[in-house]
Design a protein around this nucleic acid. Sequence first.
DNA 1: TTGATAATCTAATGCAAATTTGATTATTTG
DNA 2: CAAATAATCAAATTTGCATTAGATTATCAA
Lengths: 215, 215
Amino acid sequence: MARKPADQSVSREDIILAAADVLQRNGYETTTMKDIAAAVKLTAASLYHHFRNKDALLLAVLEAGLGRVLNEVERVARGNLPSEEKLRQMIRLHIVGLTNHTAVGAAMVFEIQSLMGTKNPPVEASEADREAYEDFIRRRNAFFERRDQFEMLFRDVIREGIENGSFRMVDAGIFVKLMLGAQNWVGVWYKPEGRLDGEAIAEMMADSLLRAIRA
Amino acid sequence: MARKPADQSVSREDIILAAADVLQRNGYETTTMKDIAAAVKLTAASLYHHFRNKDALLLAVLEAGLGRVLNEVERVARGNLPSEEKLRQMIRLHIVGLTNHTAVGAAMVFEIQSLMGTKNPPVEASEADREAYEDFIRRRNAFFERRDQFEMLFRDVIREGIENGSFRMVDAGIFVKLMLGAQNWVGVWYKPEGRLDGEAIAEMMADSLLRAIRA
DNA sequence: TTGATAATCTAATGCAAATTTGATTATTTG
DNA sequence: CAAATAATCAAATTTGCATTAGATTATCAA
């Protein structure tokens, strides 16, 4: 029963990507560890060598997804383009990021909810378990903070634009929700084989959103 | 052990409303039948008197949620207000509908996914089981159709507006996705105790969206 | 080499939750 | 009223996973 012919061993990264993919199709709760394992030709048990448990794996998927986009968007937000151009770039980066990794995109929308559940606290648990639990909570909160940061980047650019007269007076909080809703939603309905590619969609949406806020 | 003092018996409707509520907090997969039952002071077993199974219950929740809003929006869409006013009303009805029933609102976004999974086909099942399964599939497809109908109502109004010169030339399909993304998203972040009520949010969003599409 | 560590596997274990079964109690209706 | 039907319950039953245990095999470093 020749096992492991000459393959490379599977990396954490491999698993995250594959998991995102499977997760997208099935959703967190209905995706089994076995499903994910199969996607990288491992057994479920083997996954535990790379991740403490299922939640930790989900979190890693989400972190990966957010991280990539957040960095790019942040660079633009901190730069000093005119407000309108800045916002346009940010929108494009977000949408194209989602369409390039549809798996992570949908996960970002749907699975975040799974993280929020009041994970049964650590009643009667070993030292190590308690530690693992706290670690998870820490990471989870960090993730949410980064997500809020993301939202804040948009909000700040909008405020800035209002101040310098590029944008009309709007409730920046609400307008950001509107934008992010529209943008996140792309991750839900976008299909690579569809009529338009990510760039084209981003282009159109940026046009519409800017028109909505231009002074 | 006096059971059932003098309460009225629980209706299908009661269960649907309570379920929507519980579902919102926990999500479909993590909400147990027991949780839902508790919300109407029944035992899990009793729920099976009202619904074939958990999926059927979820579907009923979603049908109820969509149905309410769809009817209202449809009436406006079929009416003959000027395009801009028509679209404004539709947006408002949708958003206010979501904020009034936050439970169903979030479910509409998050739980639909649970319906899509390729429900293990009916291998080796009794006659009755097969029938139940087919019934479920039928209802599920009907639900998706109605949801598409909803999207189409918006698309048609946009096309109409473009033709009569009220709206600028846009890709109606994409613009609808943008709108519905923004609107559905409200169901995700809205909190009744928040700074603004549903009406106010709907108002602002309608303003922005109309500005985006106005000729 | 050789020992340590990493990666993987097969085979349990354990448990939470959906669903069934088989009563019991309420409510209609003929 | 009496029988049928509806609504409910407590107590199994079942099952599908997540997770653990205990090997086995691969890889790397000294």
